[in-house]
Protein backbone atom coordinates (compact mmCIF):
# COMPACT_ATOMS: atom_id res chain seq x y z
CA UNK A 1 0.00 0.00 0.00
CA UNK A 2 1.37 3.33 -0.97
CA UNK A 3 1.76 6.11 1.57
CA UNK A 4 -1.02 8.17 0.02
CA UNK A 5 -3.55 5.30 0.18
CA UNK A 6 -2.51 4.48 3.74
CA UNK A 7 -2.94 8.07 4.91
CA UNK A 8 -6.26 8.48 3.11
CA UNK A 9 -7.49 5.24 4.69
CA UNK A 10 -6.52 6.56 8.13
CA UNK A 11 -8.30 9.85 7.44
CA UNK A 12 -11.50 8.11 6.34
CA UNK A 13 -11.38 5.76 9.33
CA UNK A 14 -11.28 8.79 11.63
CA UNK A 15 -14.15 10.38 9.74
CA UNK A 16 -16.15 7.12 9.81
CA UNK A 17 -15.66 6.76 13.54
CA UNK A 18 -17.15 10.18 14.28
CA UNK A 19 -19.81 9.79 11.60
CA UNK A 20 -20.99 6.50 13.09
CA UNK A 21 -21.19 8.04 16.54
CA UNK A 22 -23.29 10.91 15.21
CA UNK A 23 -25.40 8.67 13.00
CA UNK A 24 -26.21 6.41 15.94
CA UNK A 25 -28.12 9.33 17.48
CA UNK A 26 -30.66 8.95 14.69
CA UNK A 27 -31.59 5.51 16.03
CA UNK A 28 -33.05 7.07 19.17
CA UNK A 29 -34.20 10.30 17.56
CA UNK A 30 -37.85 11.17 17.81
CA UNK A 31 -39.19 14.25 16.03
CA UNK A 32 -42.04 14.72 18.47
CA UNK A 33 -39.73 14.40 21.49
CA UNK A 34 -37.23 16.77 19.85
CA UNK A 35 -39.57 19.74 19.81
CA UNK A 36 -40.93 18.88 23.23
CA UNK A 37 -37.45 18.81 24.79
CA UNK A 38 -36.10 21.72 22.77
CA UNK A 39 -38.93 24.06 23.68
CA UNK A 40 -39.13 23.01 27.33
CA UNK A 41 -38.33 25.69 29.89
CA UNK A 42 -35.57 23.49 31.35
CA UNK A 43 -33.81 23.02 28.00
CA UNK A 44 -34.08 26.69 27.08
CA UNK A 45 -32.60 27.53 30.49
CA UNK A 46 -29.71 25.10 29.85
CA UNK A 47 -29.03 26.59 26.42
CA UNK A 48 -29.16 30.15 27.77
CA UNK A 49 -26.94 29.27 30.76
CA UNK A 50 -24.43 27.41 28.59
CA UNK A 51 -24.17 30.23 26.05
CA UNK A 52 -23.95 32.90 28.75
CA UNK A 53 -21.35 31.07 30.88
CA UNK A 54 -19.24 30.09 27.88
CA UNK A 55 -19.34 33.64 26.52
CA UNK A 56 -18.25 35.17 29.84
CA UNK A 57 -15.56 32.51 30.35
CA UNK A 58 -14.31 33.03 26.80
CA UNK A 59 -14.28 36.83 27.25
CA UNK A 60 -12.31 36.59 30.50
CA UNK A 61 -9.96 33.99 29.03
CA UNK A 62 -9.25 36.15 25.98
CA UNK A 63 -8.63 39.21 28.16
CA UNK A 64 -5.91 37.26 29.91
CA UNK A 65 -4.80 35.26 26.88
CA UNK A 66 -3.83 38.17 24.62
CA UNK A 67 -1.28 39.78 26.99
CA UNK A 68 -0.06 36.35 28.16
CA UNK A 69 0.45 35.19 24.59
CA UNK A 70 2.10 38.49 23.71
CA UNK A 71 4.58 38.10 26.57
CA UNK A 72 5.38 34.53 25.52
CA UNK A 73 5.65 35.45 21.85
CA UNK A 74 7.68 38.64 22.15
CA UNK A 75 9.75 38.63 25.33
CA UNK A 76 12.38 36.45 26.93
CA UNK A 77 11.98 36.27 30.68
CA UNK A 78 12.76 34.07 33.63
CA UNK A 79 10.39 31.11 33.87
CA UNK A 80 9.12 31.46 30.30
CA UNK A 81 9.47 27.75 29.51
CA UNK A 82 7.69 26.81 32.74
CA UNK A 83 4.80 29.19 32.02
CA UNK A 84 4.61 27.93 28.45
CA UNK A 85 4.35 24.36 29.76
CA UNK A 86 1.73 25.25 32.38
CA UNK A 87 -0.55 26.61 29.65
CA UNK A 88 -1.14 23.01 28.64
CA UNK A 89 -2.12 21.95 32.15
CA UNK A 90 -5.88 21.83 31.34
CA UNK A 91 -5.08 19.64 28.32
CA UNK A 92 -3.11 17.05 30.25
CA UNK A 93 -4.99 17.11 33.58
CA UNK A 94 -8.50 15.69 33.72
CA UNK A 95 -11.20 18.42 33.91
CA UNK A 96 -12.56 16.59 36.96
CA UNK A 97 -9.16 17.07 38.61
CA UNK A 98 -9.26 20.78 37.78
CA UNK A 99 -12.73 20.99 39.31
CA UNK A 100 -11.49 19.12 42.37
CA UNK A 101 -8.52 21.47 42.66
CA UNK A 102 -10.94 24.41 42.56
CA UNK A 103 -13.05 22.82 45.30
CA UNK A 104 -9.93 22.22 47.38
CA UNK A 105 -8.83 25.82 46.81
CA UNK A 106 -12.16 27.12 48.12
CA UNK A 107 -11.61 25.06 51.25
CA UNK A 108 -8.32 26.80 52.01
CA UNK A 109 -8.36 29.95 54.20
CA UNK A 110 -7.84 32.17 51.12
CA UNK A 111 -10.60 30.40 49.21
CA UNK A 112 -12.98 30.63 52.15
CA UNK A 113 -12.20 34.33 52.53
CA UNK A 114 -12.96 34.90 48.85
CA UNK A 115 -16.26 33.02 49.14
CA UNK A 116 -17.24 34.89 52.28
CA UNK A 117 -16.15 38.41 51.33
CA UNK A 118 -16.19 38.43 47.58
CA UNK A 119 -18.31 35.85 45.80
CA UNK A 120 -19.74 32.40 46.40
CA UNK A 121 -18.47 30.07 43.66
CA UNK A 122 -19.21 26.56 44.85
CA UNK A 123 -22.62 25.27 43.57
CA UNK A 124 -23.38 28.56 41.79
CA UNK A 125 -23.38 29.89 38.21
CA UNK A 126 -20.19 31.80 39.09
CA UNK A 127 -18.59 28.43 39.74
CA UNK A 128 -19.57 27.28 36.24
CA UNK A 129 -17.95 30.38 34.71
CA UNK A 130 -14.86 29.90 36.87
CA UNK A 131 -14.56 26.21 35.97
CA UNK A 132 -14.89 26.96 32.27
CA UNK A 133 -12.49 29.91 32.53
CA UNK A 134 -9.80 27.86 34.29
CA UNK A 135 -10.19 25.04 31.75
CA UNK A 136 -9.96 27.24 28.65
CA UNK A 137 -7.60 30.09 29.69
CA UNK A 138 -4.43 28.13 28.89
CA UNK A 139 -5.80 26.87 25.60
CA UNK A 140 -6.84 30.40 24.64
CA UNK A 141 -3.34 31.73 25.39
CA UNK A 142 -1.79 28.92 23.35
CA UNK A 143 -4.06 29.64 20.35
CA UNK A 144 -3.47 33.41 20.51
CA UNK A 145 0.28 32.83 20.78
CA UNK A 146 0.19 30.79 17.57
CA UNK A 147 -1.53 33.72 15.85
CA UNK A 148 0.96 36.27 17.27
CA UNK A 149 3.96 34.13 16.31
CA UNK A 150 2.96 34.53 12.67
CA UNK A 151 3.38 38.31 12.80
CA UNK A 152 7.01 39.49 12.62
CA UNK A 153 7.93 41.76 15.57
CA UNK A 154 9.65 43.99 13.00
CA UNK A 155 6.36 45.79 12.26
CA UNK A 156 6.09 47.02 15.83
CA UNK A 157 9.77 47.98 15.89
CA UNK A 158 9.36 50.15 12.78
CA UNK A 159 6.12 51.59 14.12
CA UNK A 160 7.93 52.70 17.25
CA UNK A 161 10.65 54.47 15.25
CA UNK A 162 7.79 56.27 13.49
CA UNK A 163 6.53 57.68 16.78
CA UNK A 164 4.17 55.00 18.11
CA UNK A 165 4.23 54.06 21.79
CA UNK A 166 4.59 50.36 22.64
CA UNK A 167 0.82 49.97 22.99
CA UNK A 168 0.02 52.06 19.91
CA UNK A 169 2.51 50.01 17.88
CA UNK A 170 0.76 46.79 18.99
CA UNK A 171 -2.72 48.23 18.45
CA UNK A 172 -2.00 49.54 14.96
CA UNK A 173 0.21 46.79 13.53
CA UNK A 174 0.24 43.39 15.24
CA UNK A 175 -3.36 43.43 16.47
CA UNK A 176 -5.02 44.15 13.10
CA UNK A 177 -2.67 41.70 11.40
CA UNK A 178 -3.58 38.82 13.70
CA UNK A 179 -7.20 39.74 14.35
CA UNK A 180 -8.44 36.74 12.37
CA UNK A 181 -6.22 34.45 14.41
CA UNK A 182 -7.45 35.99 17.65
CA UNK A 183 -11.06 35.76 16.48
CA UNK A 184 -10.59 32.09 15.54
CA UNK A 185 -8.96 31.50 18.95
CA UNK A 186 -11.97 33.12 20.66
CA UNK A 187 -14.42 30.89 18.77
CA UNK A 188 -12.47 27.73 19.60
CA UNK A 189 -12.20 28.81 23.23
CA UNK A 190 -15.93 29.41 23.36
CA UNK A 191 -16.59 25.99 21.79
CA UNK A 192 -14.38 24.30 24.36
CA UNK A 193 -16.03 26.24 27.20
CA UNK A 194 -19.57 25.36 26.15
CA UNK A 195 -18.69 21.67 26.08
CA UNK A 196 -16.91 21.69 29.45
CA UNK A 197 -18.31 19.12 31.85
CA UNK A 198 -15.84 17.60 34.35
CA UNK A 199 -14.75 20.75 36.18
CA UNK A 200 -18.25 22.26 36.00
CA UNK A 201 -20.01 19.31 37.60
CA UNK A 202 -17.35 19.03 40.30
CA UNK A 203 -17.60 22.64 41.47
CA UNK A 204 -21.18 23.58 40.52
CA UNK A 205 -22.99 20.27 40.92
CA UNK A 206 -26.07 19.09 39.02
CA UNK A 207 -28.97 21.30 40.03
CA UNK A 208 -31.77 21.48 37.50
CA UNK A 209 -32.68 25.06 36.52
CA UNK A 210 -29.72 26.32 38.54
CA UNK A 211 -26.39 24.92 37.36
CA UNK A 212 -27.61 22.71 34.52
CA UNK A 213 -25.46 23.51 31.47
CA UNK A 214 -25.93 21.50 28.27
CA UNK A 215 -23.30 18.85 29.08
CA UNK A 216 -24.75 18.56 32.61
CA UNK A 217 -28.24 18.24 31.08
CA UNK A 218 -27.01 15.28 28.97
CA UNK A 219 -25.58 13.65 32.07
CA UNK A 220 -28.73 14.23 34.10
CA UNK A 221 -31.01 12.84 31.37
CA UNK A 222 -28.82 9.75 30.96
CA UNK A 223 -28.88 9.28 34.75
CA UNK A 224 -32.68 8.86 34.61
CA UNK A 225 -32.52 6.78 31.38
CA UNK A 226 -34.12 9.53 29.27
CA UNK A 227 -32.13 8.50 26.14
CA UNK A 228 -34.34 10.41 23.71
CA UNK A 229 -34.00 13.58 25.77
CA UNK A 230 -30.23 13.09 25.97
CA UNK A 231 -30.09 12.63 22.17
CA UNK A 232 -31.82 15.99 21.69
CA UNK A 233 -29.31 17.68 24.05
CA UNK A 234 -26.37 16.03 22.26
CA UNK A 235 -27.79 17.09 18.88
CA UNK A 236 -28.08 20.71 19.99
CA UNK A 237 -24.58 20.69 21.44
CA UNK A 238 -23.21 19.07 18.28
CA UNK A 239 -24.95 21.64 16.09
CA UNK A 240 -23.52 24.54 18.09
CA UNK A 241 -20.03 23.01 18.27
CA UNK A 242 -19.73 22.02 14.61
CA UNK A 243 -21.12 25.38 13.46
CA UNK A 244 -18.57 27.42 15.41
CA UNK A 245 -15.67 25.14 14.46
CA UNK A 246 -16.62 25.37 10.80
CA UNK A 247 -16.83 29.17 11.11
CA UNK A 248 -13.38 29.24 12.73
CA UNK A 249 -11.97 27.08 9.93
CA UNK A 250 -13.43 29.39 7.28
CA UNK A 251 -11.93 32.44 9.00
CA UNK A 252 -8.51 30.81 9.33
CA UNK A 253 -8.59 29.77 5.65
CA UNK A 254 -8.95 33.39 4.53
CA UNK A 255 -5.42 34.05 5.77
CA UNK A 256 -4.06 36.76 8.00
CA UNK A 257 -3.85 39.46 5.34
CA UNK A 258 -7.01 38.62 3.44
CA UNK A 259 -9.70 41.20 3.19
CA UNK A 260 -7.68 44.09 4.52
Amino acid sequence: MKLKQFCLAAAFTTFLMYFLLMASLAYFFSGERFWEVLLSERMLFSIRLSIMAATIAMGLAMLLAVPTAYALSRYDFFGKTLLDTLLELPMIVSPAAIGAMLLIFFNTPLGEWIQTNFQQFVFTVYGIVLAQFVTVAGVAARLVKSALDEIPPRYEAVARTLGASTFAAFRTTTLPLCRRGIFAAAILTWAKAIGEFGATITIAGTMAMRTETMPVAIYMRLAISDIKGAVVCIGILLFIGISVLYAARLIAKRGIYAGN
Binding site: Y155, A159, L177
Partner: peptide, 8 residues
Protein backbone atom coordinates in the same frame (compact mmCIF):
# COMPACT_ATOMS: atom_id res chain seq x y z
CA UNK B 1 12.90 43.63 4.97
CA UNK B 2 11.34 47.15 4.86
CA UNK B 3 8.48 45.98 7.14
CA UNK B 4 5.82 47.85 5.18
CA UNK B 5 2.54 47.32 7.01
CA UNK B 6 0.65 44.80 4.84
CA UNK B 7 -2.79 45.79 6.14
CA UNK B 8 -2.36 49.41 5.05
Amino acid sequence: DLALFPHM
